[in-house]
Amino acid sequence: MKTPSESTVAQPTSGATFFHSWTNGWNQFWFQLEAPNALGAMRILVGLLVLYTHFTWGLQFSTFLGVDGLLPLEYRALLFESPFAWSHFDWFQNNQLLMTIHILGLIIVSMFTLGLWTNWTAVLTTLLVISYANRATGTLFGLDQISSFLCMYLAIGNCGGAYSIDQWIAKRRGAGQGRSCTRNRIAIRLIQIHMCVVYFFAATGKLQGTTWFNGEAVWGALASYEYQSVDMSWISNHMWLVAILTLGTLAWELAYPALIWLKLTRPIMLLFAVPIHLGIGICMGMLSFGLVMLAGNLAFVDSRWINKLFQLSDESKVHLKDGS
């Protein structure tokens, strides 16, 4: 118990002190220098996923996105009623030209993934992802929503500052490793906050349902034939497990926006993210979605860990070369 005099001493001395502590906190949060390692690792993973997405579009390009394809331009126009839902598909009405742009896009995304001219290819990849997403309305899902904002934030940061060809070239010229900078910090913070927004609304959306409370929601997802990619029907004999998975997922999503910020609980939240997203990905045929969510979670992984991981892989290569 504090005495009244002690309480008086513990009070903030002035409004100015309070303001300074806030601005210092804000500056620390947003404007400290940040290494490019996490962004570099995310660039590789997101780049591979965007490359896969674009490659897949290419398999039935004219069927889906061609001038006379499944998705008419009029449909989008009526849905959005906005000239701002831009897409390069609106500007070119020729399938061959669109296919040429598609191939150019694949090259750009490959360069982005490898980290070549990353400042430019990151911006171009973001524009490509948004352009395709705005065009392919009606066939989209979470993958497109998450990958578009991740690309945008990677373009804000210097995602080519680590694990990239740009960096390799810079090293050969004696420029050393990618510099820590403020825009890396801003990019990481935007990814972190956007991931929290995603989990918050994913969780609160589930709170409106009944099956997330009675413990049957995961059954509803696993028993859906159209989603199913691994036969999980054996779980019908173990509904207690379904209930644990359902309530566990709900609790994890609800807690994520708060507990991911605490040093003590962050590893736990990240640890659970892996089986949850990989589980959804493998069992429900949405591995690309699961991986893009995990890519977003990399923003919360310490750069030093990521660096160690990449150094380990380098060391293992050396060991292999040595025959050890």
């Binding site: 959005f80 839902a85 929503q145 578009s148 994913a202 959306g205 099956t211 997330w212």
Partner: peptide
């Protein structure tokens, strides 16, 4: 629209149907 934002993010909510 320009930035492809504005989504609801209600994945499998309120109930898997």
């Amino acid at each position: 629209r320009i930035l492809f934002l504005g989504h609801g993010y209600r994945f499998f909510g309120p109930d898997p149907g």
